[in-house]
């Protein structure tokens, strides 16, 4: 009797607890959602929905206002990969990454190692080097547009004073992509420098002290302490610079408009032109998917390797 009673009590308490717990769970869920909802709604409207819509549009032909008309399956993709203009755009994009990323990172690394020395007045140089981060794409491009100007520009004037023939920086197909790359490297330096300097400053100074005790030279310390300890930061900077390079647009729009003969028609500019100049939203969406996949790969790589492999040796 008493046994069953106890069991009954036990059962009822369990029964009573369940709805309370459930209520609490719902309550805490609602509370969590209340805090997250603004972000989730905006992400859904301006990020997730547009992403799926882009995939959807990439299978259609569209009207000039962007409404889909005829389902064409993979035709946009097939046309894209057999279009010499798009293939050239891909080639230019990858070349652009190749020109800008290593140069940006190496120059910034060099500058940040110098700027990390504890010298008088070094703060001035730190501010100088990082200043291009505050310069917008539009402003930077306009400055360089002047420097590249065939007759009045500073670059050709300097060349001229050495008796070297003027170069058509932005009009010569051989030079245009390189010129745009130089502008981009200049713009990149501010950000990459700032991050690398932060990485250098966070290296534990006791590591250098113990290297000093062992009588290690400057280069040895650089190779054995600085570079390994900096590797996570380096990795981050490299992937971010690659992603930024894939997304470059403003400097192209102002400096070359994709020319000469599509030499600087990088992928985002190509999407822009296809969609908002030619009003072919379907094939522009297919190109956007390619861009999406490229960035997805880079980010995934960053998450995967950034956590594990590239760490303190």
């Amino acid at each position: 009797m008493s046994m069953t009673n106890a069991a009954q009590i036990n059962e009822t308490t369990v029964f009573d607890m369940e709805p309370v717990k459930k209520k609490q769970r719902i309550k805490s869920f609602m509370k969590g959602m209340a805090f997250l909802l603004p972000s989730i709604i905006l992400f859904s409207v301006f990020l997730f929905y547009p992403m799926f819509r882009t995939i959807y549009l990439s299978f259609f032909l569209t009207k000039a206002n962007g409404d889909p008309t005829v389902f064409v399956g993979l035709e946009n993709y097939i046309n894209m990969f057999s279009s010499p203009i798009f293939l050239k755009s891909m080639k230019s994009t990858f070349l652009f990454v190749l020109y800008t990323v290593p140069a940006s990172v190496i120059i910034s690394l060099f500058l940040s190692i110098i700027a990390n020395e504890k010298l008088k007045g070094i703060g001035f140089f730190r501010t100088m080097y990082s200043s291009t981060m505050g310069v917008s794409v539009a402003a930077a491009s306009v400055f360089w547009l002047y420097l590249f100007n065939p007759s009045m520009g500073l670059l050709n004037q300097v060349l001229g004073s050495f008796g070297i023939e003027a170069i058509g920086w932005l009009t010569d197909p051989k030079w245009a992509l390189l010129s745009v790359s130089i502008t981009t490297i200049w713009m990149n330096i501010g950000f990459t420098f700032l991050i690398l300097l932060g990485g250098l400053q966070s290296i534990d100074s006791s590591l250098y002290e113990s290297a000093d005790i062992e009588g290690a030279g400057y280069l040895y310390k650089l190779r054995r302490v600085t570079i390994p300890m900096l590797s996570p930061t380096m990795f981050f900077v490299i992937t971010v610079t690659i992603i930024n390079a894939f997304q470059s647009f403003g400097q192209i729009d102002i400096l070359t408009q994709g020319g000469p003969i599509n030499e600087t028609n990088l992928i985002v500019y190509s999407i822009y032109r296809e969609a908002f100049v030619n009003y072919k939203f379907g094939s522009a969406s297919a190109q956007a998917i390619v861009l999406f996949i490229l960035i997805l790969l880079m980010t995934a790589l960053q998450f995967k390797l950034g956590e594990r492999k590239v760490h303190y040796q």
Partner: peptide
């Protein structure tokens, strides 16, 4: 939230413009 970092704004700019 992490996934949102993988979607570049440039890649979804066409529907965004339409919205």
């Amino acid at each position: 939230f992490i996934a949102t970092m993988m979607v570049p704004f440039e890649a979804s700019i066409i529907p965004n413009f339409q919205i």
